[in-house]
Design a protein around this nucleic acid. Structure first.
Lengths: 132, 132
DNA sequence: TTAATATCTATAGCCACTATAGAGTCAAGA
DNA sequence: TCTTGACTCTATAGTGGCTATAGATATTAA
């Protein structure tokens, strides 16, 4: 299988697959005589795994670590669990920040009665005074 | 006032102030004979404005646009309002994504009873099967 | 045979900084 | 006056996770 086919099967851009190779998330593929990458079907599972992890916003280095642990089935599960828990913590922090952001932004839009001149704009005035 | 003092007053790294200059968010400062940047106190307000906008996660190009409108007090407020509303929309989308993420991650942690071997780890198994 | 398509590498761009190297400037103390 | 240290300067590279481009080579279909 060449990279284009892998790309279609996984719905990942060709570039991204090559990028994952440079980052050692997947092994370097074999090559044809003409220097084209050749893959067997295993790579599809590997890429789907990566996709799933990325979907959870895990970093590539986290994914790399999980892959290392996967390759060593006697390793203890704890580290994977910690990784995921750390990720949950990160997500919670981001959510809190976004909630705060949303409150502030909505307060701003309320301070604008449209079609005023910028000189009188409540938004701009609010941006000038810091309430943080 | 030299850049270090501006940095202290605004609590922005010196590098960042120079960076904002390269991005035309603040005007090029005057220079001393020895080529050091010299600022008057106006720049403090400008930087606080930028800080406040960044705090709302507005992009530098949005901030630049708002600055342009500010400099033209006859401009109509509408565009500023739209900018902020777009930002609210973005934040809402991000929040939705994060909520989804959190649900998925928490489901993962629940699938792990600690101190198992990686080979039996529920998290890793779940990551292999895609439920999205 | 030729044209279209697929692939290759290398490089730059995105965003908003942050960090580093190496050189120059300046003020205070000995 | 000299030196030391703090400050500043520019230019460049790195962050993360791609994405886009250029220019070359390979393969495939008509």
């Amino acid at each position: 299988m060449k990279i284009g086919q892998v790309s279609k099967k996984t719905d990942l851009p060709v570039q991204t697959i090559r990028y994952y190779e440079t980052q050692n998330l997947i092994k370097s593929a074999g090559r044809t005589e003409g220097n084209f990458r050749v893959y067997d079907s295993k790579v599809i599972d590997q890429l789907e795994f990566i996709k799933h992890c990325r979907h959870l916003d895990l970093s590539l280095s986290d994914i790399k670590r999980i892959n290392e642990l996967r390759d060593n089935p006697n390793a203890v599960c704890e580290e994977v669990n910690e990784l995921i828990n750390d990720q949950v913590k990160l997500v919670k922090i981001k959510m809190k920040e976004l909630r705060h952001l949303k409150t502030q932004l909505e307060a701003l839009t309320n301070s604008c009665s449209n079609n005023q001149k910028v000189g009188d704009c409540g938004i701009i005035k609010s941006l000038q005074e810091c309430d943080c």
